[in-house]
Amino acid sequence: MIKFEGVSRRFTNGHFGLQNVSFHIPEGRMVFLTGHSGSGKSTLLRLIPALDQPTSGTVRVGGHDLKRMRPHQYPKLRRQIGVVFQDHHLLLDQTVFNNVALPLQVTGYDPALIRRRVEAALDKVGLLHRQRARSIELSGGEQQRVNIARALVNRPKILLADEPTGNLDPELSREVFNQFADFHAIGVTVLIASHDLHLLKTFAVPRIVLHEGQIARIEEAY
């Protein structure tokens, strides 16, 4: 599903965000991406939805070589990928409903279908009762759950999460990870970047450990 072959990303200042990274995540697997701050986790995640391009190497997503993809094909790729960021990326002046509906609106779904799906997604993250609230009125944990609902409302094949529990307390963090595990259970390929080792250890999931832009080791589930 996600395949990196000798991928490097060198920034304009000469620093390597990633260096010769290779791994393969088969369809329907859940994998953790871990490492210290600045180890290249976010750089790696940005390459998967083609938000950034590798300097060298090949990134394949769902069988497509992203290097061969034309920019006008990116939206179609991104609609198959749900992304959850630490800093939410919510439209704070919009309601919870509108934020979650956004991926369906840009895809051009019927309003009635959008309503059904958004309500189902909000119900899943336990925020159906807050659908009319403006996002700015929500707590950090609630905002993150809206973020998750938005990432999943389009029924993506891949879910990427970059430090999704960075702003949350341990209990909420655990709840968020449980939700990711639920999505994995129904066939979604999940890749979560986190440096919260304590939390990661509670899940029997393979881990890719990054260190200074390189893969230090790949740990199988235990």
Partner: peptide, 11 residues
């Protein structure tokens, strides 16, 4: 907002 739109697959 535009970055977010691009991220979620807006053309």
């Amino acid at each position: 907002e535009l970055l977010l739109m691009a991220l979620i697959g807006a053309t």
